[in-house]
Computed example of a mutant assay.
Amino acid sequence: MGARPGPAVCGGRAKGVACWQRCLPGLALLLLIGGCSGRLDNDSILHTRSPVKPAELLQTDVDRMATLAMRNNLNSLYRLMNKLYQRNPREWRKNAHTDSAAAERAIQHAIEHNLDWPTLGGRRDVAALDYALSPGFQGDRVAAFTYAIGSMLVTAHGGRTEFYLTDSFNAQFIHNAARNLEKAAWMLGQRRDASGQPLLLSNEVSEQGSNLSYAVEFGKMVARLDLLTHVLEERYRRMGANYAQSLFLLNFLPVQ
């Protein structure tokens, strides 16, 4: 009797289409197991080291980089929120929360679950940002300011906080988000009320000392967005260059 043939594998003489059809159910299962929802959960955002998920197999290097950049940018935003509440404790007392920690959790939940913030009247992104630092706003400015930046970051990335093979990016929107952050940092330091006092206390340079930690966190977020923009632009440029090289070198593509 002849030897029993071994199991078919994705390689050798197996045809690419048949191989993909065999692998597709397994990839779908990975998506289900990994919970490929396109949104980071709060634990993944707050902790730098998170367990490897099966769905990460469906991420390119750029997808993984964008996911980590989003997580770290939200971390920086939450640190800014905490610092602002420390210097402006009157703000969290404007709402029904028992303490600043409860207010922070509510804001994080709204950002990460794509919910409206009640005092912004349905505003998000840049519209919410301008309104949060306007003299006429009467609500919790720290909450509104943080939510506005968070929703802007998510919107610029296509409404997602996790990214996979099927996702696409608009490098221009991410670049614009970086510039909006620079403007937000400037607004935070310059906006005043009718008596000339800052709407929110943040950076401080005085005889007693300097506190520029707010500017540092803004700088980190801008740098991450700019790096991602450059990586995306380079990826699309290299795709065209690689295609041109294949034509120049007359490299034929395999058909089986």
Rank of each mutant, 00 (worst) to 15 (best):
M187L: 11
R235N: 13
L27P: 06
V17E: 02
L227Y: 10
A96F: 15
Y214N: 13
C36R: 14
V222A: 05
Q190V: 06
S76V: 03
L80W: 03
P198N: 02
R123S: 10
L31I: 02
D226I: 12
L232F: 00
R191A: 05
A66S: 07
P254R: 00
L31D: 12
E56W: 15
H47R: 15
S195D: 12
H175Y: 09
N211L: 08
N73R: 13
M70D: 06
G121K: 03
L30E: 11
G35D: 08
V52Y: 05
S100R: 13
G34N: 11
G150V: 01
G196Y: 02
N114T: 11
D41L: 00
E207N: 01
C36N: 12
S44F: 14
L27K: 06
G209C: 09
R87F: 03
A185S: 12
P51M: 07
V17Q: 01
A184R: 02
G38A: 07
I107E: 01
P89S: 11
S210D: 15
G34A: 11
D125G: 12
T161F: 09
R238D: 00
P198R: 08
A101M: 14
A177T: 04
R4E: 01
F252Y: 13
A194L: 14
R124M: 08
W186D: 06
L74G: 03
M65E: 15
P135K: 09
L232M: 10
V142M: 09
N73E: 13
R160E: 13
R238P: 00
G12V: 00
L57W: 04
G16R: 02
A96N: 13
Y78F: 15
